[in-house]
Design a protein around this nucleic acid. Structure first.
Lengths: 143, 143
DNA sequence: CTTGTTGCAAACTTTTTGCATACAC
DNA sequence: GTGTATGCAAAAAGTTTGCAACAAG
């Protein structure tokens, strides 16, 4: 796994550093995580990493296509590894549960938008907000 | 239009103030705007409004269901009036163009998610990122 | 009058930047 | 050795909060 990282980095003239390995590993371990959470995880492994390095590294990793980010909350962006199979997210506005969904489900929509608008969806970045089964609004209450 | 505002405000025990009218009008005029942009617009009408009031007012207006926000950029949230007919957004990651699309287009997806997951999509909040016709990636370049 | 609302200034959170030092290659 | 990467500390950007003064109803 560090092989792939090293390889991709070199290809773009970047260098393989322990920090970059820590960050990538943290993203893979956490699944979906904000920069802060990644930072916390990395720190728990090694205290020798700075926040700004985390930000800079996430940027590089995203440029290399090893991680992606989506906006799963009203606040910070959330990073996830790309080695997980591609997916998009349903986010409950009430309990903040994140459900990963297979891209197939959006395929028809994607095709339609591409056909009608020439717009190509970036599925990995897609976050669909709403309410999960548990939190569905009933008649009397409004979201 | 101020009628509706006044009415809704009172119903919840809020008061009608000039600031709230300014903010609502600004959102309606701008179409899609970040709090900063709303603030700038409001200031151009009257210098007697503070940033924090803009934030507080957007919150109230959203609670009342008069405006909505979505995340159309990696940075700030974007507010839009709900008196515009409901719609969702396609956002080009390259040129940042925002295309408003009729909810009908997502209806099949919405139905499927509701049927299979019990998840109810919040369409007004939906932002779909990707690349518009102009900016579609070709074979050699990656997004 | 009463209580919600505003302005102001300061605090906070998240992210970015400049620069000297450290280290990958 | 050369040039990229990092740590650090400070700045920037966006948002929130406490409180006294103000104003809507």
């Amino acid at each position: 796994m560090s092989d792939e990282l090293a390889q991709r980095l070199r290809k773009e003239g970047y260098r393989l550093t322990p920090q970059r390995q820590f960050v990538l590993r943290a993203v893979e371990k956490l699944g979906h995580a904000t920069p802060d959470e990644v930072y916390a995880e990395v720190r728990s492994q090694s205290s020798a990493v700075n926040v700004s390095t985390v930000y800079r590294t996430l940027e590089v990793l995203e440029e290399l296509g090893l991680v992606r980010h989506a906006h799963l909350s009203d606040r910070a962006p959330t990073y996830h590894s790309v080695t997980d199979h591609e997916h998009f997210h349903l986010v409950c506005r009430n309990c903040h549960t994140v459900i990963s969904v297979d891209p197939d489900v959006v395929a028809p929509l994607a095709e339609r938008l591409e056909r009608e608008q020439g717009f190509v969806i970036d599925i990995g970045h897609l976050a669909v907000f709403g309410h999960c089964v548990e939190c569905r609004p009933t008649d009397e209450e409004n979201p």
